[in-house]
Every structure is written in C-alpha cells, then in structure tokens.
Nucleic acid binder design. Structure first.
Lengths: 196, 196
DNA sequence: TTAAAAAACTAATAATCGTTAGTTTTGCTG
DNA sequence: CAGCAAAACTAACGATTATTAGTTTTTTAA
C-alpha cells in the first residue's frame, strides 16, 4: 500500500536514517521502537527490513557519518597554514555549524553511542579519543608559541567540546536567538572569556 | 536469605537509590532492568518492591534530589553580599563539585530526565528553566555593572552550564588530572578565556 | 520463646520488543 | 499486457520487560 517515499535523489535507506535520527534523539535509542520508526515512515515495522539490516545498524550508520564528518574537517584544518588560534576557532565554528545543521544526528552520536555494538563501539571511542588528542596537541602548540595562556590543555579541550555539545539546548531559544549571534558569542566566550 | 544491606545509618531505600543511580548512569534508564538492579543489590527483582514504589519513582527521586541541591545553593548565593563575578564563580565551582562528588546522580539527572513521568517531568523542566533564568539575571547584573563584557547573557549561561556538564567525561582523566587543577582551570577558562 | 512485622522468595501476568517467515501487492520493463 | 523484482503486508516467534500475587523466611519485640 503505502510506499516509503524516496524523496527525489535521497535513497530509501537515507530517508529511514533521517527519521531514525530524529526519533532516537527525541526518545532515546533504547526507548525508540521499530514500530514507532515505521509509523513515522508511514509503513509497518517489518517493511523496514527490506531496506535496513537491523536497529543497531541504524545507530551505527548515524554515529559513523557524524564521526567521519568531524574527522575529515580536522584533517583539513590541520593541513592548513593557520595559527593555532585560527585553527581552534575553525574547529569550534565547525562544531557549532554541525550542531545547527545536523542537529539530530550529532545529538544521537553524542548521547546514544553507548548502545553501539562491537566492534563499532570500540572504533567509535577510538576515533573520538584520537580527535581529542589532536585537538589537545593544537592547544599545546598555541601554548608553546605563547599565543595561549599557560593552561591545562586537556581541561581546555574538555571545556570547549562540552560547551559546543551543549548547543543541543539551543533549540529552546531558537526564536529569540540568531544562529550567527550565538556562534560568535560562544567563540568569543571560549577564547577570550567574559570578564572585561 | 540474602538481605538488602542497609549500611549503617543509610536507609534501604537510599542504598537502592545509590545503586540505581550508578546503573542508570552506566547503562541508561531505559536499558537498565529491575533485574539488573536487583542483581547489584544481591536480591531478586520483586524484593525491591518491598522498599520502592516503581522504577519511575527511582528516577524521580534521583532527579529531584539533584535539582533541589542546585536550587538550594543558588538561593544561598543570591542572598550573599558578593559581586556578580564572585557569585558566578561560586556557581561554577558548585557545579563542578557536585559533578565530582555526586557523579552518578548528576549524570542521571542530566541525561535521563526525559523519562520522568508527569507531573514530575514538567516540574523538573520548570525548575531547570527557573535556575537558568536566575543565572542569566546574574550575568545581566555583571554587564550592567560593567564588570562583564557586553555579551549575550543567554549564550554565556548556556556555555557555562554546558561546559561544567561535560565533566562527566572527566573520569577518563581521573588518574592524570587532579580535581583542584581541573576546577581552577575550568573556572579561569570560562571567566577569562584562554588567549593571552 | 513466641507472635507479629518486615522482607525475602517463587511463579506468573500482560505488554512490548526486534525480527523472521510467508504472502500479497505494487510498479517498472519487455 | 505479461512477468519479474521490489517492497509492502499479516501473523507470529521467542525474549525480555515491569510488576503483582501469594508464600516462606528472617528479623524484631514482647
């Protein structure tokens, strides 16, 4: 009867992935049922399995895509001829933009990764650790070049990554808060503080 | 046979609550079963119901206690004779300390609140919103008194709260990173930035 | 020591879960 | 229009869930 609409160029699997990301973000992975996902697709639950392998696979696909996007951007930034501060700013802005334009997927990646199955779980954590380590290295370079204060690099990176992650609550202010204003304010806060 | 050990002065319900917080944090509320909790208590699942009302009630108790602790502290800070910056710093330090000494409970409150049942869910969100609003007011005072930059108060509070929330990842560095160093670094970062 | 209360147990409930099997419908291609 | 593949459907599976009922054991108190 009802058929899964493959909206133009986007594949059926991708449209399921998008709806899954929205559902997993709103209700959590474990609390989301395949029947709910099917309802959102306008289809019965078993029909989904013509297009996907399993519920776990959906989560894996979402997390892997997000992780790959960040990984790719970090490589670009590292390869560029910029100061450590400029690089750091670029990373922060990319995190914010990813959060704004792939909201559901980034949130799912941030919150539901623990339900990944092996070996995907280990891969994901390894990739994440690697990302953090390279970001810490960037801060260290900034300190060595005396453009950054003599701070604890790990704490600085933890603070920055946590702050941008918190943009998941940005939705609340969506009407009253322009995205550009938000981005610039947060970047300035994280780089230069708030005390006059 | 085996009896739920009420360790000294702590009630049986409280010892269940503590184990529940640990379990809910590690596995997530929905993925945690009463059988797992019972196993952690050294007891069969139905025995738990001699001491608690339901699984939902456990989550509610955990979230309510955390929310009340923050609410109480905010009242104290508001009532004190301190500059906005000092007040802000006290709030940040309290968040960090709460995260370090009631780790499981704060994490559960931060991540699993969405599974609260009404009317507790609405109450929790209302309390949270109220807390944020009063923190925003504090930042506004700092701006009016020209001790804080002309920043966007909402973004500043969002950034601060998100950063301290990220301390859930502090565990990873527990061995290599002293708690006091962490606290001071994060406070300085959030107040004065990292650029020299 | 004995009666009462607290808290454990076993067994079972109805509901929901992801997923499979088997069948029917849909939509494209010749 | 016939045939074939893709994708939908219904029905059902075994597993797991929170929770209840009813019973037995343990602890407390007189």
């Amino acid at each position: 009867m009802a058929k899964i609409k493959s909206g133009g160029t986007i594949s059926k699997k991708d449209s399921i992935l998008k709806k899954a990301a929205t559902l997993f973000r709103a209700r959590g992975f474990k609390a989301s049922s395949m029947r709910e996902l099917a309802l959102a697709m306008g289809v019965e639950a078993p029909s989904l399995y013509n297009h996907i392998g399993s519920k776990s696979e959906l989560l894996h696909s979402i997390c892997a895509r997000v992780a790959d996007a960040f990984q790719k951007h970090l490589l670009e930034v590292e390869a560029s001829n910029e100061t450590p501060i400029e690089k750091l700013e670029k990373l922060i802005r990319f995190h914010i933009q990813m959060m704004l334009q792939s909201f559901d997927e980034v949130c799912v990646s941030n919150h539901e990764w623990k339900y990944l199955e092996e070996p995907h779980l280990s891969n994901f954590l390894q990739q994440r650790k690697n990302y953090e380590q390279r970001m810490i290295l960037l801060v260290k370079h900034g300190i060595d070049e005396k453009v950054l204060k003599d701070i604890h690099p790990q704490v600085a990176v933890l603070t920055i990554l946590s702050a941008v992650r918190g943009l998941e609550f940005w939705q609340r202010y969506k009407k009253e808060l322009d995205a550009t204003v938000l981005e610039n304010n947060m970047v300035n806060h994280l780089l230069t503080g708030i005390i006059k």
